[in-house]
Design a protein around this nucleic acid. Structure first.
Lengths: 148, 148
DNA sequence: TTAATCCCAACCTTTTTACTCGGGATTCCG
DNA sequence: CGGAATCCCGAGTAAAAAGGTTGGGATTAA
């Protein structure tokens, strides 16, 4: 019932990008350092996110990654789905064919309700919400950021 | 983001017992056969559920397992917690100490909301609800059961 | 006494996780 | 133009978790 580090790292990295949206491409090594994630490993996650259209990349010197869309248009559900697959507690909800017991399995009803609740939360939260949360945390910590 | 088979099998087995609550102990092999689960593997799960006070066992011939309490007093959350650990999407919510980034990590806010939603669903559904659902499914399938 | 049952610990195989490694392709900058 | 900074890609790998299996011991009803 846990996310793997892919989902956790991936979200942190994307929030990091969201925090700097509009400031041009951010090289991966700075994200990796700030978030304390292995750069090479993070690279693999970013590759998936790029192919899914969540971030874009610019190669070469002064290159890096940036969000493909404004933070308020990217939900957490989208990000997690890319990195962890469909947001469902059991496989038989994800596979079109379903499990062979679906017509006789009461358990499925509770898994359906659970899947719905999870998607509600993750689908209604956007990166903009987390950027705002970050702002709030920074203020609370008296750790103000000065932008030039 | 998926339950392991422990949670899935375990719930199915317990629902099976709930369906027969009040009929005395049910031997494990009949549950295993009905639910199509390896008997020895299921045994390990039942052992955990017994130690957690969800089922009781009676040894010897004519023995078996039964619910320790009426179905309406056992939530799905309880069962899943025994078999899968705390119902949280990330470890840093489960460990008392939390992660070392907790004061600066916006991601945690969304994981908290998610954990809450999951616990709401699983904590408000009881085995009685699933027994009822089973009844409904049986009726829909025209598969009536006759009890002697 | 015997068959049915639960109880327990150890072992095993496969898959997944969480990386690391090495090198190639682009692009900016001086 | 050359070199440094980047992203891109595929393979390899060690450790952990998943999903069991095996074998035997303890209890109890009939």
């Amino acid at each position: 019932m846990r996310l793997s580090t892919k989902g956790q790292y991936g979200l942190r990295a994307v929030v990091d990008l969201a925090d700097r949206y509009g400031q041009g491409p951010i090289p991966l090594n700075t994200v990796a350092q700030r978030e304390d994630i292995s750069e090479h490993y993070l690279e693999q996650l970013m590759s998936q996110l790029r192919k899914a259209g969540i971030v874009t990349s610019i190669r070469g010197a002064q290159g890096g990654y940036q969000l493909a869309r404004p933070p308020q248009e990217i939900t957490i559900a989208e990000i997690i789905e890319v990195l962890e697959g469909p947001i469902v507690p059991v496989d038989c909800l994800a596979n079109e064919d379903g499990c062979n017991r679906s017509t006789i399995c009461a358990a499925q009803s509770v898994w359906k309700k659970l899947a719905e609740a999870m998607n509600d939360v993750l689908g209604s939260t956007t990166l903009a919400d987390l950027v705002e949360e970050n702002q709030r945390l920074r203020n609370k910590n008296g750790d103000f950021m000065y932008y030039i």
